[in-house]
């Protein structure tokens, strides 16, 4: 009896050691990131854009849907610092309000992808056998479906295209890479001594997975997820360009860029430049932050 209790305590201690190890990994990474100007700049951009998405009224008091048609395609001026679009809507207000769609698509899709990917990856890696076979074949299908074409087919099926349907499309198509990362990581750790020890002491599957195995997969998964954030922002724009993304009167950078690009050579380059600059800065910020995170989390590259 006492022996058993002791063992549990010691198992817990070793688990704790594992967490401390990963905690120090994160602490190291944090220290490393703070020293990188690119990472700091990226973070600042992300915070600014997120604030536009969450509280657009902090940035503008103009209603982007109040459009006097007489002001159509005005070039930037004091009254409309980004000019107006073809319907006379204030382009600065539209650009600010357009952040929301991009950020929601990026954040929610990535969260879902992380969630689904982690669950599937863990199940496949931990249980193995037929569970692994079925899940791996399923992942194969979605992995093999070209992302853009898959999204195209998926979205064309749906009746309406809102931010949420695009999120759904990205999540349905995006989880396999994450699942593979997590699966590989589970396979690598599940036979490690400390996990075997915890198992032999009667730790439940769930406890093993979430306390002992998953933390090891977190670092690579989060790096990939950060980069995915950027990819999704860009993909939303591409879908809008192809006409199967968000539909006006919804406001998004993707729609603005897609509509504005035809006016570039017609004397209204502002219709492309402002939304494109905001979108590119956001994508760049996410990708560079992901990159920095990867470098910071990979001690080999220090």
């Amino acid at each position: 009896m006492t022996e058993q209790v002791e063992s549990v305590i010691s198992a817990d201690r070793s688990a704790q050691a594992g967490i401390e190890r990963s905690a120090s990994l994160w602490a190291d990474a944090w220290r490393d990131l703070r020293r990188r100007p690119v990472a700091i700049a990226s973070a600042v951009v992300i915070v600014l854009v997120s604030s536009m998405a969450a509280f657009p009224w902090l940035w503008t008091r103009t209603d982007p849907r109040d459009c006097p048609i007489q002001l159509s395609k005005a070039t930037p001026s004091a009254a409309h610092i980004f000019g107006t679009n073809e319907l006379g809507c204030d382009y600065y207000a539209m650009t600010i309000y357009g952040a929301r769609a991009s950020i929601i698509v990026a954040l929610v899709s990535t969260s879902l992808v992380l969630l689904v990917g982690a669950l599937v990856g863990m199940a496949a890696g931990f249980y193995g056998g037929w569970v692994d076979s079925v899940l791996s074949r399923l992942a194969d299908i979605f992995f093999a479906l070209p992302f853009l074409l898959g999204a195209l087919v998926f979205l064309s099926m749906l009746r309406s295209h809102s931010v949420w349907t695009i999120v759904l499309a990205f999540a349905v198509l995006g989880w396999p890479p994450l699942a593979r990362i997590v699966r590989a990581s589970v396979l690598a750790t599940k036979n490690m001594d400390y996990v075997q020890a915890a198992r032999s002491l009667g730790a439940s599957d769930r406890r093993l997975l979430f306390r002992h195995i998953l933390p090891n997969a977190a670092a690579p998964a989060i790096v990939v997820a950060t980069i995915l954030l950027g990819t999704y922002v860009a993909s939303e724009a591409t879908l809008s360009y192809l006409g199967i993304g968000l539909q006006p009167p919804e406001i998004s950078w993707g729609i603005m860029i897609a509509q504005g690009q035809s006016y570039v050579t017609s004397g209204y380059p502002h219709l492309l430049l402002f939304p494109a600059a905001f979108l590119s800065a956001t994508v760049l910020a996410f990708i560079l932050l992901g990159d920095a995170l990867r470098d910071a989390l990979d001690p080999k590259l220090r």
């Binding site: 990819t231 860009a234 591409t238 897609a258 690009q261 590119s280 760049l284 990708i287 990159d291």
Partner: peptide, 27 residues
């Protein structure tokens, strides 16, 4: 040479291409 000037140039320029929507790059 990781961390050198060229390292940054390569990183920023290639990432920039990803960050600009492909239809704009193409057009």
């Amino acid at each position: 040479r990781g961390g050198s000037f060229w390292d940054y140039v390569v990183k920023v320029s290639t990432t920039m291409l990803v960050a600009i929507p492909i239809f704009v790059v193409g057009a």
